[in-house]
Design a binder for these strands. Structure first.
Length: 429
DNA sequence: TCTGGGGTCCTAGGACCC
DNA sequence: TCTGGGGTCCTAGGACCC
């Protein structure tokens, strides 16, 4: 525990204690491919592509190291992968298998730290700060973890160790395959400097192009720039980028505690047709199925969604999203479908060939609050009445407005009343 | 080459309110 | 009658990640 703390000197010269965190990033090697090999050992050592068949519409989910030698990588169209590596074995994905293995991985990690956070199905962050007495110094702990992972799951992983999520994440990538890499506290900037800017999580194709245009290739080039220059050019993101170049968890999700449970923000399902279609019956059937899938997930999680969104992609890949926010949250298939159907017919260019449809639910409440237990029209009237009361208060002063006694009772008994008449129930002195 | 499916976060603009 | 400024909610699109 004591080793995790380092004495430091504050601006006033008074010694204080600063926590140096020890973060592990554990990343499974070629996860989907490795899991498929467990089910079919004959795949071992071969060029394997997971995600679908060679002639299908779709992209590569994962490629074995053997296939990567031919330039195949994830997110590449399957048909492209087939051309680059004709002898590759193409395997359909099995999400259920990956979920089962992911849980085994999680179990192993849980024996090393109480603060474990699965960042996706095949990678996790561990806060190992203060675990020295139990597991020894970082490198020793990492090697033990590495071995136990192999023993318990038969899967390889790579472990990055650093003082921030960012350093841990970047170092695990450098440790691949099947390795461990520890960036000693204080050496963060030195470690990052020679790496391509693209290695920084959050820098994608577009940002990379922008940076290259400025003559910035390596992370070290970034640190030579004034922070204000980056902020001027890229706004809030530029400022965060300056911090990342120094190895800090600057801004956004990276700044959160490891293991801090952030609930889901949206649930969605989408479908790409094997062949584009303009058949209304087929399109509506798909929307119905997707609405049901979303509804079921909402009920399983006990979420109620207020915002329902349609996604529509045409033959030429142009994509639109259209959303509608309900007056009261729902988890019912029928309500979701009703809104999705309306959105679809309002926005679909009739007769146009559709490639993809998607349904998303968001703006969650764990349970409908008191007011949304009322049905839609009643709830709207509540809102209208409360808003009207607020307006009157603003105009005439606090004492001028009192809601009629038994407002709830009035609502219950007079459900068919025109909402416009409600402000009449508010007395003005 | 012809582009999946599941997510998160950010930005920008408009409506509406005070 | 015109003006303004801040805050919140909502929508649409896009970058990015695995």
């Amino acid at each position: 525990m004591a080793a995790a703390k380092q004495p430091a000197v504050s601006g006033t010269g008074v010694p204080r204690t600063v926590f140096v965190r020890t973060i592990f990033h554990v990343d499974m090697d070629a996860f989907f491919v490795s899991v498929e090999e467990l089910y079919d050992p004959s795949l071992k050592g071969k060029a394997v592509v997971v995600g679908g068949q060679r002639d299908e519409r779709g992209v590569v989910s994962a490629a074995s190291y053997e296939a990567r030698k031919f330039g195949v990588h994830s997110a590449m169209p399957l048909r492209t992968a087939a051309k680059m590596c004709p002898h590759a074995i193409f395997v359909d994905g099995h999400p259920e298998r990956y979920r089962v293995c992911s849980e085994k991985v999680y179990k192993v990690l849980g024996t090393f730290s109480p603060q474990v956070e699965m960042a996706s199905i095949d990678e996790a962050y561990l806060d190992m700060t203060g675990t020295e007495r139990l597991h020894g110094p970082p490198l020793k702990a990492a090697h033990t973890l590495h071995q136990r992972m192999k023993a318990d799951t038969q899967l390889n992983c790579s472990v990055g160790i650093g003082t921030s999520r960012l350093i841990a994440k970047v170092s695990s990538a450098q440790a691949k395959p099947n390795g461990v890499l520890w960036i000693v506290p204080g050496e963060e900037a030195k470690f990052l400097a020679p790496l391509e800017v693209r290695e920084i999580p959050g820098v994608g194709k577009v940002m990379e192009t922008h940076l290259h245009a400025l003559g910035i290739q390596k992370v070290g080039d970034l640190t030579k720039l004034e922070e204000s220059e980056l902020e001027n050019r890229f706004g809030k993101w530029g400022l965060a980028l300056a911090g990342k170049a120094r190895g800090e968890d600057a801004g956004g999700w990276f700044d959160t505690e490891v293991g801090e449970d952030v609930g889901a923000k949206s649930i969605s399902h989408e479908h790409t047709y094997d062949e584009d279609t303009a058949d209304v019956n087929q399109l509506e059937a798909t929307l119905m199925r997707l609405s049901e899938m979303v509804g079921r997930r909402l009920r399983e999680a006990n979420f109620y969604a207020r915002t329902i969104q349609l996604k529509l992609r045409y033959k030429d890949f142009t994509t639109i999203t259209r959303a509608y926010t309900l007056p009261a949250p729902t988890q019912l298939d029928t309500e979701i479908f009703e809104q999705i159907r309306a959105l679809f017919h309002k926005n679909w260019k009739k007769g146009a060939q559709v490639r993809l449809l998607g349904v998303q639910a968001s703006s969650f409440a764990t349970a409908p609050d008191q007011i949304s237990l009322l049905d839609g029209s009643r709830q709207q009237r509540w809102k209208d009445a409360l808003a009207a009361a607020d307006r009157l208060r603003d105009k005439f002063g606090e004492s001028s407005v009192k809601l009629a006694t038994g407002m709830r009772g009035v609502f219950r008994e007079r459900t068919h009343e025109n909402p416009a008449s409600l402000p009449g129930k508010i007395r003005k002195k």
